[in-house]
């Protein structure tokens, strides 16, 4: 554990809780992509199956349970409790275009051919692109609520902080996992456009709207 990893985790946690609180307080999931949330639930489920097979630390296990619970809680709110507020017309990204290639890639580029390792690798690849339906939705509607922008910023920052964590771990522990590093860089690059808009608009008190 180092400061970059911890900051990344806290940023990730903040993002997930921010989204839950936003939906709960406004009693609405307008502007949120249910498809991205489905992908994140798949990501957490396939990655955290190791809760049953290996134990690293109380911190890790606790966070995994929180992420899983919050993720399924979000799905419940979106697709059951506040379903009428879900804007499915604008959530039209075809997620099979992300699910299938990630799955194929996880069979081609993987460290070890075991079920758990392939599922873990799949979760890494899928996570890298899971935000695309949400970004697509923002581009289709041309705007995002400020709280949604904060959510996206925290979620994007998490992987960017993890990149610093990997650089740090490379120098201090000789740790180098190219799969997670490349995927993490791709994931962060996808947010760059949004980061730019967030810094130039939202931080100056303006609503995020596209020209």
């Amino acid at each position: 554990m180092n400061i970059f990893r911890l900051s990344g985790d806290l940023s990730h946690l903040l993002a997930i809780l921010l989204l839950l609180v936003k939906i709960w307080k406004t009693r609405s999931c307008a502007g949120i992509s249910g498809k991205s949330q489905i992908l994140f639930a798949i990501v957490y489920t396939t990655r955290y199956l190791d809760l049953f097979t290996s134990f690293v630390s109380v911190y890790n296990s606790f966070m995994k349970v929180v992420f899983l619970t919050a993720s399924y809680g979000t799905l419940y709110l979106m697709f059951f409790k506040f379903k009428p507020t879900y804007d499915h017309n604008h959530d039209s990204f075809r997620i099979l275009y992300l699910i299938i290639p990630s799955l194929v890639l996880s069979f081609i580029i993987v460290h070890v051919y075991t079920v758990m390792e392939i599922l873990w690798t799949y979760s890494i690849y899928l996570e890298a692109v899971a935000i695309m339906p949400q970004l697509f939705m923002v581009s289709r509607t041309g705007e995002a609520e400020t709280i949604t922008s904060h959510y996206l910023f925290a979620l994007g920052s998490y992987r960017a902080l993890y990149i610093l964590n990997w650089i740090y771990r490379y120098y201090t522990e000789d740790f180098l996992d190219m799969i997670v590093i490349i995927a993490g860089i791709v994931q962060t690059i996808l947010y760059c456009d949004f980061f730019y808009l967030y810094i130039t608009k939202v931080l100056k008190g303006k609503r995020l709207s596209l020209p």
Binding site: S54, V112, M116, E117, V180
Partner: peptide
């Protein structure tokens, strides 16, 4: 090689 236990990240 990486084993499950070595994925000490979230």
């Amino acid at each position: 090689p990486v084993t499950d236990a070595e994925h000490d990240e979230l």
